[in-house]
Nucleic acid binder design. Structure first.
Length: 206
DNA sequence: GCGTCGATGGCA
DNA sequence: GCCATCGACGCG
C-alpha cells in the first residue's frame, strides 16, 4: 500500500518542531505574550499527547499592573509568579474554571502570560476557544500550578515555519483595573477561527 | 445576533 | 465581597 503508517506520519510532523527551553520564557511578559502566538502546547494525558497551536494570549506585566494578581501583593496564590520564568501559574476563577498562565520575566518581578485560546493540531478535535474551555479540554488544573514547562507532561514547541500575523487589543474581563484596562496587552492571530468568543474577532467574516 | 444573568469557591 | 468565564435564556 502507499499509505504511511500513522506513527510514521506523526513522527515526521513533530520532527519539524523544537521544544522551547527555559531561557525562552525569561523575557518580559509583553514580548513573551507575542512570541507565544503560533507556539504549540504539548500536553500529555496518560499515554497520549495532545498538540494545540496558541492563537490568543494576554500579558500581565508586573506588580504595578492593576490587572495582575500580584498587584495585591505576594501571597500563597501568586507565589509562583515571583519565581523563575517558564513555570505554570494555574488558578481558579469564578469558582469554576482553571486559568493557565506561563510565568515570565525575572525572579521577584511577577509577570505572566495568560493562554486564552488555541486550535487543536494533528487531527485531534476540541473547542479551545477560551481560557476556561482550553484548560478543561487539556485537563490543566491547579494540580499543575508551579510545574516547569520543560516537563514531559506539559511543555511548548516551536514551529520555525509558523510566522503568524499578530494583532494587539485591550485585555478581557478586567474593568476594575482603571487605566490598565485600555492597555493593548492582548495578542491574537486574526486569521484564526479559534479565538475566544469575547475577542471581538471570532465571528468576524473574512 | 446580542445583552443579561447565575453558578461556584478560593482568596484577601 | 470580589473576580483574567461560560453557557443558557430571553428578546426579536
Amino acid at each position: 500500500m502507499t499509505a504511511f503508517p500513522m506513527a510514521a506520519v506523526a513522527a515526521t510532523w513533530s520532527c519539524s518542531l523544537i521544544q522551547l527551553e527555559q531561557s525562552f520564557y525569561a523575557q518580559p511578559a509583553l514580548t513573551l505574550a507575542q512570541a507565544l502566538i503560533g507556539k504549540v502546547i504539548a500536553r500529555r494525558v496518560r499515554r497520549k499527547v495532545f498538540h494545540a497551536r496558541i492563537v490568543e494570549t494576554e500579558a500581565y506585566v508586573g506588580s504595578h499592573d492593576l490587572a495582575c494578581h500580584a498587584s495585591k501583593g505576594r501571597t500563597n496564590r501568586t507565589e509562583v509568579m515571583f519565581g523563575p520564568a517558564g513555570r505554570a501559574y494555574v488558578y481558579l476563577i469564578y469558582g469554576v474554571y482553571d486559568m493557565f498562565n506561563i510565568v515570565a520575566g525575572e525572579v521577584d518581578d511577577p509577570q505572566a502570560v495568560l493562554i486564552r485560546a488555541a486550535e487543536p493540531l494533528n487531527g485531534w478535535s476540541a473547542d479551545l476557544s477560551g481560557p476556561g474551555k482550553l484548560t478543561r479540554a487539556l485537563k490543566i488544573s491547579r494540580a499543575d500550578n508551579g510545574v516547569a514547562l520543560t516537563s514531559d507532561r506539559l511543555h511548548l514547541l516551536d514551529d520555525p515555519a509558523d510566522r503568524p500575523q499578530i494583532v494587539a487589543t485591550p485585555r478581557i474581563g478586567i474593568d476594575y483595573a482603571r487605566e490598565w484596562k485600555h492597555e493593548l496587552l492582548r495578542f491574537l492571530d486574526p486569521t484564526s477561527k479559534a479565538l475566544s468568543s469575547r475577542s471581538g474577532l471570532s465571528s468576524t467574516p473574512r
